[in-house]
Each structure stands twice: as structure tokens, then as C-alpha cells.
Design a protein around this nucleic acid. Structure first.
Lengths: 259, 259
DNA sequence: CGGATGGTTGATAGCAATCAAGCACAGTGG
DNA sequence: CCACTGTGCTTGATTGCTATCAACCATCCG
């Protein structure tokens, strides 16, 4: 591993608070590698050999079953993936491929597990990373189960706007077909539903999205901190009031969920 | 906290490998409590004060948004919940209620966070628990995105059969409406789809399910270790072969997913 | 200029939600 | 003992959202 990589990695949130000796130990066998676009990194079901850290570029995590395939997440710098599989030394639940040219740090899983026991600060970093991954996946599931496709798209656009610094105009970071899959719908339906959001203050031109009426868009999908993510100091909603204990749980029209 | 509770708790997977002094520290302010059926334990959005450990009974974790509600998980002894929220000291993403009379251990979150740094064995237990929670949620999301309702039900039945020791006859552990919600469909649809599985080797009588033709049921939903869970020494499938890189990703008929 | 890929649009089918009863069962109270 | 009532479950009719199938367009690229 190159010296400049070494320094860069040392500054990553996951590694910055650990003791120098621990860092050295974890770095044994660790290397950074550059991958071309659209390269399969690993398949679901494989054994977990390396913790992956995205340094540059982006990686798609996806899953498939019986010929169907779905995008589970897109990881960008400085995100990690398959931490859980490494910790438990179990097969990956997802497959991974690069979306663009991507530089990835590959940290041997055994080293992680060993140093975890010896360096409390590293353990804290690991567990916080993992906790955030859990919460992210829980939000993903909630999003799928509690919202219909139109709402999911509206929510996604609002979230992207937040990530772009609450900008009213931003460019989609990934191709639409991938967003569609991530949001749990077909590309065709995504296209249609996205267009239909013109009524709700969304303007489209290629990959560029312009929010012309934020209030209307929020009306189409009231944002909720507990689904859309923490987005610091969100003025919008984040409301989650205790509901008034209805006689028999009432269901909102338009969504499955339960009774 | 009673002495016999103390001993019982000490033997739990989460606490059994930690040092005595650490255990003492974590137990400060910890208490076991018995709750009546159908009692709300907390609401999503609340601050994470206690790690919860189910000692007896069962707890439903659910989430709601804009009047819609969905079951995210059912926790049984000796499972924990909201570990991630405790670790990160963030609001719960889900609400919780008891399903039956339930005894729960309430462990103050600050103690967890403090002792985590001091006792490596405890840290390992925590992180393994959390990793498993992540994987469970990831499987839940995969299940929702890659299978249609019929398949999800068939998969659920096969899983329940495994949990009952690969029994061909077993009793549903929770009411059907709740299973339906967990599987992401309405109670009505669950009822219909369940009945339609008679064609696939499933017999029904009240809460009792009899699998008369396991092969047929597996055909209705090929089980996959990476969705249905680890179910030790499963003979069935668990196959997840590298697909042969089709010219343009083909989609199976009947499921959303992506392209 | 093909050819491949991503995106869009239209027509159609189908799965799943909604609305509305009706049934079964348990607990309660007369 | 038996209405009475609440709850869970089922069934039927209907609506409608979403997938599927099939073109077609735009862009990029060798």
C-alpha cells in the first residue's frame, strides 16, 4: 500500500480514532485498488474476506433471486459496505459492482475482527458504522412498505435536494433505471410516475431536476426523519406524533401495510 | 432487580462472556419488568433510553407513516431490539408493543455505551447482535423486493416449518393479520393467497398449517439462504449461482425489481 | 453508419388494495 | 345458558396501481 494512501486512510472516520499500533495491524494485508466501471466486485453468497471502503467513485449493492434483481444501495466515498458479513464471517447478502471508475480500500476481515477486541476506539467506530447501516436498511424497508411508488419518488427527490444542500435544482447522481430499482419499481413506471410529478412542482430536463414548488412536493410525500434519513436541521416535517388510538386501526387509502 | 433475574440475565448470550465487573456496571439501573398484552412500549421517534431484551412472551416492532402502519418484526426470547438506536443515541425508527404478556429486561443505554469501551468481549457480543440485526433487515428488504405475495407466503411457511424443527405440521405463532403486515400485504390478500397455496401442497385448519407436498411448496418459492435466513443444515436449496451474464439483464415475469 | 444502452411512451394484463358483508370464536353479562 | 359484542378471518365484487410487452427515440461509440 502506498504511503499517501496510508495517510489518507488513516484520516477516515473508521480509522482515525484508533491507536497507531492497531491501525498498523489492521493495515496488514490491506490495499487500495482502482476498478474500472461496471466491474463485478463480488457475488452474494460468497464468503466475506474483505471489508470494502469506497475512496472514490461509487458502488452499487444489489441482490437477485430467481432471475429477478434489485438495487439495495449505492455507496459513495467515504462509505463502507458488507461490514456485517465481515463481522459475522458469513456469506454476503448482496452482490456489488462498480458504477464508474472506483477506488476501493480492501481490509482483510480477520484483521478487523482481531483488532476490534484490542482497541476500544476502533470498536466504537465499527459499531457506529454498523448501527447506521442497520438504520439505513430499516428506513429502506419502511419506505417500501409504507409508501406507494409516487410517494417514494417524491421522497427521493426531496432527499436528493437535501443532499445537494437544499438546492432547488440538482442532477441525479445515478441513472434512472437504477433509481427505479432502488425504489422498488420498474424503469417504465418510474418514468411515468416521475413525469406525473410535474403536477407537484417538479420540472425535468434529462438528468436535471428542478423543484418549482417545494410545498407541493412535500404534500405529495410528507417527509419523515424516520424514513428519509437524518438530513440535519431539516425544516420540513419530521413529525411523528403519537396517533390517537383509533377504535380499530384505520388504514390510509392507497397503501398496503396492514390492519 | 431480583437475584434470580440477575443470574438468568447473566447467562444470556449478550452478557455471558463479559467480565463480572462490566456486568455489574451494565446492570446499574437495569430492571426486568412484566407487561400485559397489547401494551405500547414506545413510539417511533422517541429517544433511545433502554436496550430491550425479551425474556418471555413476544413483542411486535412496527412502523407507521401518514396513517399507514406495518409490522417490521416480531421479537421472541431471547432477542433484543433497538440496539442500533441505543448505540447511536438516536430516536427509535420503530414502535413496539407487546403481543402477549411479556417480560422484558430494560438496560440503560448510557451504561451499554460506557461498558462497550471497557470490555472487549461485551463489545464483540454487541456487534455480533447488531450485525445479525442488520442482516435480518436486509433479508426482509430483499424478500419484499424480489418476491411477490404468493412467494413471500410460501417462503414464510417454509421458514416456520424449519423453526418448528422441519416439521410438516406446525401452528402459526402470531395472528394472520400480523403475518400479512409483516409480509407487506393486506390481511384479505394474505387470506386468499394462503388458500391458493392449497395447490402447492399446503393444508390449512385454523392456525394449523400442514405441508402435504414440500417439493411443491419449494417450487412455489425456491428457498434461498440469503433471503430466508440461515436455517442450519438446510437440505433444500441455498443455491445462489453466478448467473451467466445475459446480454441485457433479463427480468423474470411476475416481479418488479429492476432492469 | 450500425449497434448497444438508457429512457420514454402506449396498450394491455394482472396482481393486489379497497369496499362491503358475512362467519367464527371468545369473553361478558343478563 | 344464551344473547351480545368485539375481534380476527374469510369471501366476493370492484377498483386501480404497477408490471409486462412492444415500439420508438436519443445518445454514445466503434
Amino acid at each position: 500500500m502506498r504511503a499517501e494512501d496510508f495517510d489518507e486512510v488513516r484520516r477516515l472516520p473508521l480509522f482515525r480514532s484508533m491507536r497507531p499500533a492497531s491501525f498498523q495491524a489492521v493495515m496488514q494485508g490491506t490495499y487500495a485498488q482502482r476498478f474500472p466501471p461496471r466491474l463485478d466486485l463480488f457475488r452474494q453468497g460468497q464468503g466475506a474476506d474483505f471489508l470494502h471502503v469506497v475512496l472514490e467513485g461509487s458502488v452499487e449493492l444489489f441482490a437477485d433471486w430467481q432471475g429477478a434483481s434489485t438495487t439495495m444501495a449505492v455507496v459513495r466515498p467515504v462509505g463502507t459496505f458488507i461490514l456485517a458479513a465481515c463481522i459475522r464471517d458469513l456469506p454476503y447478502l448482496m452482490s456489488a459492482r462498480t458504477l464508474e471508475q472506483t477506488r476501493i480500500l480492501l481490509v482483510p476481515a480477520p484483521g478487523i475482527r482481531a483488532v476490534f477486541r484490542e482497541d476500544a476506539e476502533f470498536a466504537v467506530s465499527i459499531v457506529e458504522e454498523l448501527a447506521e447501516a442497520f438504520r439505513s436498511m430499516a428506513r429502506h424497508a419502511k419506505n417500501l412498505k409504507l409508501r406507494n411508488s409516487r410517494e417514494r419518488i417524491a421522497g427521493y427527490l426531496l432527499e436528493q435536494s437535501e443532499l445537494a444542500g437544499r438546492a432547488d435544482r440538482f442532477v441525479l447522481q445515478v441513472e434512472k433505471r437504477l433509481v427505479a430499482s432502488y425504489l422498488g419499481m420498474t424503469a417504465e413506471n418510474f418514468s411515468r410516475a416521475l413525469r406525473s410529478l410535474a403536477m407537484d412542482g417538479v420540472e425535468l430536463k434529462g438528468q436535471t431536476v428542478t423543484i418549482t414548488d417545494r410545498a407541493a412536493l412535500v404534500r405529495a410525500c410528507p417527509n419523515d426523519m424516520l424514513i428519509d434519513g437524518p438530513n440535519p436541521d431539516a425544516t420540513g416535517g419530521g413529525l411523528t406524533l403519537p396517533r390517537p388510538a383509533l377504535p380499530r386501526e384505520r388504514r390510509r387509502k392507497g397503501r398496503p401495510g396492514q390492519g
